[in-house]
């Protein structure tokens, strides 16, 4: 078994054995989803044009998915490894340093799949339906999980640079402006001018739109799906690259 797979297995086991590290990251987006629905369900009935005869929950599901998978959990696991001295042990082993980061990201993939299934389940319970069918559901899960992997690099890099639990945990806050400066409540064309301009250059907009079209439309819109996949890939390349660079320059 390759060193990446070995470290991935260890990280996935860790996720499984410490559910307390995943549950808070899941609780907040589900809480937001429920609160948002309670507040705006009546304002946006199913007859609202941009809902395409769905409940507002369907419109919100992609936001909750992206919110749930964009966590600092891997960064926190990395800073724990630094604290307990286990990272030193791995660094002294004859392995590629990149395998240490890939192992962590594998855990993000597993966690992302599990969390996405749960969030979708909550959405279904509130009446959401994925119009693009089973393929759409699978794409929602896979793309959400991959976004979680792509985004995880930022917390890992912060963990390696700062070696500080509080700072790494606070990196979660970076995602709030990214999430809320998007068409998360209404479509892009309904946003006010300045917010619309910001949302257009915000990569998270393209993730939410790609996922949202899978929920709202029966046919897959390859253009928005491609933009979503491309954004995930580019974000992943940049942030994973930064985290690997941080590990290569890591020393106590």
């Amino acid at each position: 078994m390759s060193e990446t797979l070995l470290l991935a297995r260890r990280a996935v086991r860790e996720v499984w054995r410490i559910p307390a590290a995943t549950i808070p990251a899941l609780f907040i987006p589900v809480f937001f989803l429920v609160v948002n629905l309670g507040q705006v369900n009546r304002i946006f009935p199913t007859s609202t044009p941009f809902l395409h005869h769905q409940h507002y929950v369907a419109f919100q599901i992609p936001v909750s998915l992206v919110f749930a998978v964009s966590s600092a959990t891997s960064g926190l696991a990395m800073v724990t490894d630094i604290d307990i001295g286990y990272l030193d042990k791995l660094l002294a082993a004859p392995i590629r340093r990149t395998a240490i980061v890939w192992g962590r990201l594998a855990a993000d993939l597993a966690r992302g799949v599990a969390v996405s299934i749960i969030v979708l389940g909550v959405g279904f319970a509130f009446g959401a339906r994925v119009k693009s069918g089973v393929v759409g559901v699978l794409l929602l899960i896979v793309l959400s999980a991959l976004w979680g992997v792509a985004y995880a690099g930022i917390a890992i890099a912060i963990a390696l640079r700062t070696k500080n639990v509080q700072t790494t945990n606070a990196s979660f806050l970076i995602f709030f402006p990214l999430l809320f400066l998007t068409p998360n409540f209404v479509p892009l064309e309904l946003l006010a001018g300045p917010l619309k301009a910001i949302a257009r250059i915000n990569p998270v907009t393209y993730i939410i739109n790609g996922l949202r079209e899978l929920v709202l439309y029966p046919h897959i819109h390859w253009g928005s799906l491609g933009a979503c996949a491309l954004t995930i890939a580019l974000t992943g390349i940049v942030l994973t690259g930064i985290s690997m660079r941080a590990l290569n320059h890591f020393s106590d």
């Binding site: 260890r10 086991r13 860790e14 490894d81 307990i84 030193d88 042990k89 004859p94």
Partner: peptide
Amino acid sequence: RRRIGVALQEVGLDPTQ
């Protein structure tokens, strides 16, 4: 690294395994 073993002052073990 291939020729050395290291046990540091702080026990470097993953407590979840």
